[in-house]
Amino acid sequence: MLRIAIQAKGRLNEETMALLTDAGIRVVAGKRKLMTQAIGFPMEVLYLRDDDIPQAVYMGVADVGIVGLNEVAEKELPVVEEMRLGFGICRISLAVPREVDYSGAVWFEGRRVATSYPHILQNFFKANGVNAEIHEIAGSVEIAPLVGMADGIFDIVSSGGTLVQNGLREVEQVFRSEAVLIATAGLDDDKRRELEKLKFRFRSIIDSKGLKYVLMNLPKNRLDEAIALLPGMRSPTILPLAEEDWCSLHVVINEHELWEKIERLKVVGAEGILVLPLENMIR
């Protein structure tokens, strides 16, 4: 049985729980309960702070974990990155007061920067030959310049709204992050098999995102034109209709090109077009 560590609360918790639900895994979390048994998969769920998850996985307290890549990079522990999960996307950036005449990373030379990610920032400054003072604080990093604690900050940015509210502007995007599935190095064979089953479920959900299942009726004499427009995962599915000169064509289309494809299909005679959500795609 696997033990998975997930964030107890915060920005990744809801999306992690949604992923588990989509994968057919139900987790009922009780108040003040640190660990619970999953339903639908042989797994225990351990609730931790996000910055404790990499260490828990490294120590084998949890076999696997879902956490931001930024926390993995910050802790610099030898855990195995199994797969990226496509949510919790953000960046960690340097920001300065908006009135500053910023001239590049060299601007930070000799200045103080407040952050919760000192190791990632130190690596960036070292790579750029900058000698700055890194002041580590937990939480409310964005107010540090306002109260005179620092000249700039290094923090997570999603929309950038919090920076604007505090009179800051983003000047260097240093690290891009998203939720990742990590594992303890050297899992035994039984746990590795269970992990592969879990990854299979996750992958089918991730692969289906942004895809639509499209069905349409089409004159048989226009079939070649439609197929040229709509390559499927291998090729479109074609089924006969009761009306001899017509067929039904089924295909998976990327959401971003859906309407352009539908418009072109109508030109070649497609009718009765149905667009359906695609929950999972098993490759």
Rank of each mutant, 00 (worst) to 15 (best):
Y213N: 03
G10Q: 09
A270L: 05
N13W: 07
E133Q: 14
M149P: 02
A144S: 15
P240E: 00
T237K: 06
W259E: 15
G30P: 06
G129C: 09
G68Q: 01
G167Y: 10
L12K: 07
L85K: 06
I153L: 08
L48A: 11
G30E: 13
A18N: 14
N128E: 12
L69H: 04
M233S: 11
V67F: 04
D245Q: 15
P54E: 03
D101M: 11
I143N: 03
I273S: 01
G152A: 14
T184W: 01
K261C: 09
V147P: 04
K31F: 08
G86T: 02
L85C: 04
A242Q: 11
V113Q: 05
P219F: 13
L239R: 08
E225K: 05
L230Q: 01
V268I: 09
F125M: 13
E142Y: 14
S208A: 15
V174A: 08
F124T: 04
G65N: 00
V252R: 04
G186D: 04
T115N: 14
K9L: 11
E76M: 07
L249G: 06
H119P: 01
V252I: 15
M83N: 04
E255K: 03
L19M: 15
I205E: 08
D50A: 15
K197D: 11
G10K: 08
T162P: 00
G65I: 08
P240H: 01
I253H: 07
F125L: 14
R169C: 06
E271V: 13
I6L: 07
K31D: 10
F87Y: 09
L20P: 01
A127Q: 12
E109P: 12
I253N: 10
G272N: 15
E244T: 14
R11T: 14
L77D: 09
E71V: 05
G65H: 11
L163V: 14
Y117A: 12
H250L: 13
D63K: 02
I253L: 15
I182E: 03
H256P: 00
E279F: 13
D51M: 00
I206L: 09
C90W: 01
E76H: 07
T21Q: 07
F175H: 12
I282C: 05
D245V: 05
